[in-house]
């Protein structure tokens, strides 16, 4: 989600709430005999408010899970998650009086700090990365469908392979055009050495690259290397097969885009592997802290 003008109202409300809570905190901190404490009336009020904001931020995950619930747009919830979640940090600091307290509260404060920091990092990524992906990944697809698309690319490449490495079934396949059938037979009859070279390049480089989840270890992962390989294939083969290699090159280009998309997607979402579990721990331990502190 981009942080744009649509966030203005949320930002203003958050800033106002922050200023109000700060305006209450400063005299409270200066006037209290023993300094601010989470156990004082104002301290407890800050604690309740801070935990309430955290609960609201956590509810975003429920909103995402139950998409059909008519409880506001997901984008509105996300904005609330961002800004009110951010506001929870100073409120909790005011609750704690800027001290760490015992082991449990220290852990809570560390967890909150990590969750907020990772959230800010994630928000920054969500702001910049989509533009980057649009610019650098021409053939973008749905991230969760990348494996499925990759398998389809392999099947598509296998069909193209028949043009220079024909099998009987392949030649008889109805999908194959007569032109390609002739080209394949010509190659088979004219130059068996060239045919064998092209088959080898396909089997050893193109297909493994298309099958692999990443481009690691494959020269086709580099656009420059890929161009050289396909240029060489076009050089040694009759012109009527060049279109086949152009298509194969395009498939490899799409695979590179998918790889790049996967990489960017990992960047874009891997922080959630820290943010979400630690937030879950924060909520549970926070509840324990609240019960223990209020009960005892």
């Amino acid at each position: 989600m981009r942080i744009d003008h649509t966030h203005r109202r949320w930002a203003i409300v958050t800033a106002i709430l922050f200023v109000v809570s700060l305006a209450i905190y400063v005299p409270y901190s200066l006037e209290s005999a023993h300094g601010p404490s989470g156990g004082s009336v104002i301290g407890i009020a800050y604690g309740v408010a801070g935990y309430g904001l955290m609960i609201f931020a956590t509810l975003l995950s429920l909103r995402k899970r139950f998409t059909t619930w008519r409880i506001g747009r997901a984008q509105t919830w996300m904005r609330g998650h961002l800004w009110l979640g951010l506001l929870s940090y100073p409120i909790i600091l005011f609750h704690a009086g800027f001290s760490l307290g015992g082991s449990l509260t220290t852990i809570l404060m560390i967890l909150l700090t990590i969750v907020i920091a990772s959230g800010i990092f994630g928000a920054a990524l969500q702001h910049y990365m989509p533009t980057l992906i649009t610019e650098r990944v021409a053939m973008e697809t749905i991230y969760d469908q990348i494996d499925r698309v990759r398998r389809q690319l392999v099947e598509e490449a296998d069909r193209l392979r028949l043009a220079f490495s024909p099998t009987l079934e392949g030649l008889l396949a109805p999908a194959m055009s007569n032109e390609r059938r002739i080209a394949a037979l010509t190659l088979k009859l004219v130059n068996s050495q060239t045919r064998s070279h092209l088959t080898e390049v396909y089997s050893d480089q193109i297909r493994p690259y298309l099958e692999a989840r990443s481009a690691r270890g494959s020269s086709l992962g580099s656009e420059r290397e890929s161009k050289l390989i396909f240029e060489q294939m076009r050089t040694v083969s009759p012109e009527m097969l060049h279109e086949i290699f152009n298509d194969l090159e395009n498939i490899c280009q799409e695979k590179r885009d998918l790889d790049r998309q996967s990489k960017y997607h990992r960047w874009l979402h891997s922080w959630l592997l820290g943010h979400v579990p630690l937030a879950a721990a924060l909520m549970i331990l926070g509840l324990i802290h609240a019960v223990i502190a209020l009960r005892y």
Partner: peptide, 30 residues
């Protein structure tokens, strides 16, 4: 998996402290 395991880890730590009779985790400060 992580969202389930990490809170469980913390809860286990609290449980172990409880079994040891150590209530310092709940202390409000040093």
């Amino acid at each position: 998996i992580l969202a389930a395991c990490i809170p469980v880890l913390f809860l286990t730590w609290l449980g172990v402290q409880g079994l040891r009779g150590n209530s310092t985790p709940y202390s409000s400060g040093k």
